[in-house]
Design a protein around this nucleic acid. Structure first.
Lengths: 208, 208
DNA sequence: TTGGGGACTATACAAATGTATAGTCCTTGA
DNA sequence: TCAAGGACTATACATTTGTATAGTCCCCAA
């Protein structure tokens, strides 16, 4: 619908190549599970159903593939929280969790890839962390402007704690089945988490 | 001082082999930095100042080396918190941080190795997570028995949140220099963290 | 004194790795 | 119609990997 668009959808080069999308998805899935160094390009190509050489065609190298996946995941996280930071109050954090659940159901491996990226210090991982921290700082600032922050609170550390709260479940997820019998992102866990979170953030949980 | 101990300190076989200790230390350091699959045995042996073959002598395989390091780090964490769980109240968490600082200064790479172990789901990592969770559950129970827990608090999620608080700084550490200009375990960061933590845990930081 | 065993080294080997090269197929624009 | 280019495959290559084997050195008990 923009200008006089050519008939057969020219589309971006990324979209016209099925193999490229398959490689991105396969790389995201396998890197998330076993780390960057833990997976070979042949396995990724097999998982994607394409040949080994196609990695070079589209991404140049293994590092190029990682960079492309990093970019993709970073974009998703940006979009995920684009709306959340406009809200405020402890309930908004619950909303953030709901949005994250939507995201996970849509793009299963992206969250676990982000988890891995934060662990291995790759070029893209610093950008990922900075983005998450930036989102939480904005959330704190929004709350402060609306008078929802308790007086005297260290805003920087409030933001850092929100980062912990966002990262925490993702880090713990691989151990959750064994430790709790269910996923951190299962319905009962999310409900209990939100209840605790709202309470702890507004009143704490220990007596002074 | 036990029984009639032989003269020249028979010691455990682990202690009599300098190469073994060197390999453990080198493996811990390099695995922590680049992950299990990201480091080769030759590099570890070189860092340890021993030959490649010695890994096989002492640990049998690369996985054997990891298992030995896992065990070592798990023991350290157990000892670290053996005293902490006897204390209670929000201040005890500050004490825990102080103890962790001591630990870090003594065994620099152990914390970052634990961080890596939690990320890569190895056989030992589940045990590590279970231990940390267990410690936090005990802390919550101790507080509950002494009436320091606010009424109606979800104890399980309180423990989980304490896990986040313990893991969080370690996860963030590699990005801290760039994002905050200092280590998460530097003096000013620790001080600000403790202040925020005591406040947030007892009163929260958002208005209801 | 001697022989057995543990700590340790040097080297060989097959498998797996990332990368490079050559080429096929098919669409598309001049 | 035809050539140019992008998506894709097949295969070769040098390097690195974990593991295995053979052997040296040295302490200590018999």
């Amino acid at each position: 619908m923009t200008t006089k668009a050519k008939q057969k959808s020219p589309a971006l080069p990324e979209d016209t190549a099925p193999g490229r999308r398959q490689l991105l998805a396969a790389g995201m899935k396998l890197f998330a599970k076993r780390g960057f160094a833990g997976v070979g390009l042949r396995e990724i190509a097999a998982e994607a159903g394409v040949s080994l050489g196609l990695v070079r065609t589209h991404f140049g190298s293994k590092d190029g593939l990682r960079a492309a996946i990093d970019e993709h995941v970073l974009d998703e996280i940006k979009h995920l929280y684009a709306t959340v930071i406009e809200h405020s109050g402890a309930e908004a954090l619950g909303m953030a969790v709901e949005d994250a659940l939507d995201w996970i159901s849509r793009d299963q491996d992206a969250l676990m890839y982000a988890r891995m990226a934060l662990m291995e210090k790759s070029p893209g991982s610093q950008a990922l962390f900075d983005e998450i921290l930036s989102i939480m700082r904005q959330f704190v600032d929004t709350n402060a402007k609306r008078g929802l922050l308790q007086p005297g609170v260290d805003r920087e550390w409030a933001a850092i704690y929100l980062v912990f709260d966002f990262i925490g479940p993702a880090i713990v997820e691989p151990f959750a089945k064994s430790a709790f019998g269910k996923s951190m992102y299962s319905e009962p866990m999310i409900a209990a988490r939100n209840a605790f979170m709202v309470r702890a953030f507004t009143r704490g949980f220990l007596k002074g």
